[in-house]
Amino acid sequence: MSRVAIIDYQMGNLRSVQKGFERVGVAAEIVADPRQIGPADKIVLPGVGAFGDAIAELRRRDFVPLIRDAVAANQPFLGICLGLQMLFDVGYEGGEHEGLGILRGKVQRFDLPHEFKVPHMGWNKGRILQPAPVLSETAQDTFFYFVHSYYVAPEDRNIVAIEADYGGPFCAAVWKDNLFATQFHPEKSQADGLKLLKNFAALPVAAAV
């Protein structure tokens, strides 16, 4: 039987994400040991903090092979905020840091006119570009909650599922096969964010597309 496993690498807003799942009737488990995550599990990679430190901690705890293998094996996978950014090739927060390389592209800081505050914090509407399964029944221009100074720039524009605007358009979510990841925080995005978590938990394990 599948379960939702939230990766604990000491840098995520773990309890907040777990409570979000609980609010939609899903028992999600926080897991600190990669050996406790099985091939039937749905995996969540949350994240709050610095890109370089987070990647280093994932490597130290031996989560990197598990994440890569799970995505390759078509296990449902959800990245949140920093958990989205680390899926890409490289991040430039406090230097240059190699990411997981699961998706092609880079993570760069907002470079905006002075009237735009960085970090970008608060509610912003998203324009749905790709009808990912986790967005079932999500209306166009739904507002989601963001807290970030960096954003992802995918090489392949076809994986952008949601686009938002802050001094210009940026990628707010990606979708590719079994993998979905958001720059916004669904666990903090009230009913629409919780609906996304519920839809993720309901994905079939064998194929999330």
Rank of each mutant, 00 (worst) to 15 (best):
L203M: 10
K106Y: 06
L112N: 05
L194K: 03
A54V: 07
Y151P: 00
Y145E: 12
D53R: 09
S2K: 08
V107E: 05
S149M: 03
G47I: 00
Y150N: 11
G52C: 06
V4W: 04
A164V: 04
G94D: 11
N199T: 00
N13S: 08
R3M: 03
G12Q: 10
G168I: 01
G95R: 03
V31G: 08
L197Q: 06
I30P: 12
Q140L: 01
V24L: 05
A72H: 03
V152E: 10
T142Q: 12
C171E: 05
G105A: 12
R61E: 07
C81L: 07
T182R: 05
V134A: 09
P131H: 02
P154L: 03
Q108M: 12
Q75E: 09
F116W: 07
N158V: 00
A28P: 13
M86W: 05
P119G: 15
L58W: 03
Y151Q: 14
I102Y: 06
Y166V: 02
E115L: 04
R23V: 05
A208N: 07
R127E: 15
Q190V: 00
D141C: 01
D8R: 01
N13H: 07
H185E: 13
V134L: 07
Q10L: 14
L14Q: 08
D177W: 01
A70S: 15
E115A: 09
R127F: 05
F77P: 12
M1H: 03
F51L: 01
M86Y: 06
F146H: 09
Q108I: 15
D89G: 07
F146C: 08
F63L: 08
I43S: 14
A28V: 08
P76I: 04
P39H: 08
N74Q: 15
G20W: 02
A132M: 03
V118R: 03
H114T: 01
P133T: 03
Y145T: 11
V205E: 15
A132N: 05
Q140N: 07
A5R: 11
E93R: 05
E187L: 06
